[in-house]
C-alpha cells in the first residue's frame, strides 16, 4: 500500500516570454520504508518534483496524495501543519536556525507540534545520539562542521516522526567521509525506524545506497528501477 501517490503532476513556470514545463505529467507511488533516489541532469525537474511533493510549491495540475489526503486541497495553514507532522526536510545547505543550538534545532519541530518538554528533551537526546553528535547538543551551528550540521538536520527531520523525509541533494556540500557517515546514518534509520527517505541527488554514492532509483529527464520519469 503506497503512502505517497503522485498523479499526473505537472508544473509549468510562466516565464516572461516562454513557458517552461519543469515537471510534466509525473505518476509515482512510494511505499512505506522506501529508500529512493530521484536522479537526473540539472534542469530535469528533481527539485521541483520534491518541492511539490513536500507541499512547498503548488503544481500547475495533478495530485499529491499522502496518507489518503491530496495535500494541494489543503489551505495554506493546514498545509503548514501537514508538513510539520508528516514530512521531514533535509536541505542541501543544512538550513539550521543559526541562533539555536543543535539540541534546540532538533527540539524546535517538537515544540511547534506542542509536545511536552520532557518528551522533547528525551527524543532530542535520543536522535542526536543516534546521528552520532550527542556530545554537541549545546553547540550552535557555526561551531559544527558541515557533516555535523547535516546530521543535526537529519535529526530535526526525524524529530516530528514524519511519514517520510525529503532530502534535496543532502550530500552536495559534504566531503566523502561525511557523505559516507551521513548515508550510513540515514540507511540505518531507514531500516531500524522504517522511515521513508526520498532523495534528489547527483551523487553516485547516494544512488548506490538507494534501493530504488527514479531517473527524470525533461520533467518526465525516464526510468524507475528497484534494486
Amino acid at each position: 500500500m503506497s503512502i505517497i501517490s503522485i498523479r499526473n503532476l505537472t508544473k509549468i513556470y510562466d516565464g516572461s516570454s516562454v513557458e517552461v514545463t519543469a515537471v510534466n505529467g509525473v505518476n509515482l507511488d512510494f511505499e512505506k520504508g522506501e529508500f529512493a533516489a530521484i536522479v537526473g541532469p540539472s534542469g530535469s525537474g528533481k527539485t521541483t518534483l520534491l518541492n511539490m511533493l513536500g507541499g512547498l510549491d503548488r503544481p500547475t495540475s495533478g495530485e499529491v496524495i499522502i496518507d489518503g489526503q491530496n495535500i494541494w486541497d489543503l489551505s495554506s495553514s493546514k498545509l503548514t501543519e501537514f508538513r510539520l507532522n508528516k514530512i521531514g526536510f533535509v536541505f542541501q545547505s543544512y538550513n539550521l536556525i543559526p541562533v539555536l543550538t543543535a539540541g534546540e534545532n532538533t527540539e524546535f519541530i517538537m515544540h511547534l507540534q506542542g509536545k511536552s518538554r520532557e518528551e522533547r528533551n528525551k527524543r532530542t537526546k535520543e536522535l542526536l545520539d543516534e546521528v552520532g553528535i550527542g556530545d554537541r547538543i549545546k553547540s550552535r551551528p557555526n561551531k559544527l562542521s558541515g557533516g555535523q550540521q547535516q546530521r543535526v538536520a537529519v535529526a530535526r527531520a526525524l524529530a516530528s516522526k514524519p511519514t517520510f523525509i525529503l532530502a534535496d541533494e543532502p550530500t552536495a556540500n559534504l566531503d566523502s567521509k561525511s557523505t559516507e557517515n551521513l548515508l550510513d546514518i540515514m540507511e540505518k534509520l531507514n531500516k531500524e525506524e522504517n522511515v521513508t527517505f526520498i532523495f534528489s541527488t547527483h551523487d553516485a554514492r547516494v544512488v548506490n545506497k538507494a534501493r530504488r532509483v527514479i531517473t527524470l529527464v525533461d520533467g518526465q520519469v525516464d526510468t524507475d528501477v528497484t534494486k
Binding site: 495553514s77 501543519e81 508538513r83 526536510f89 536541505f91 538550513n95 536556525i97 524546535f108 511547534l112 507540534q113
Partner: peptide, 16 residues
C-alpha cells in the same frame, strides 16, 4: 529570507 523560508517549510506557521 532563506531562513524564514526554511522555518515555514519545516512547519512554522507564518503568523508565528
Amino acid at each position: 529570507m532563506r531562513e524564514m523560508g526554511v522555518m515555514i517549510a519545516i512547519g512554522m506557521k507564518r503568523f508565528r
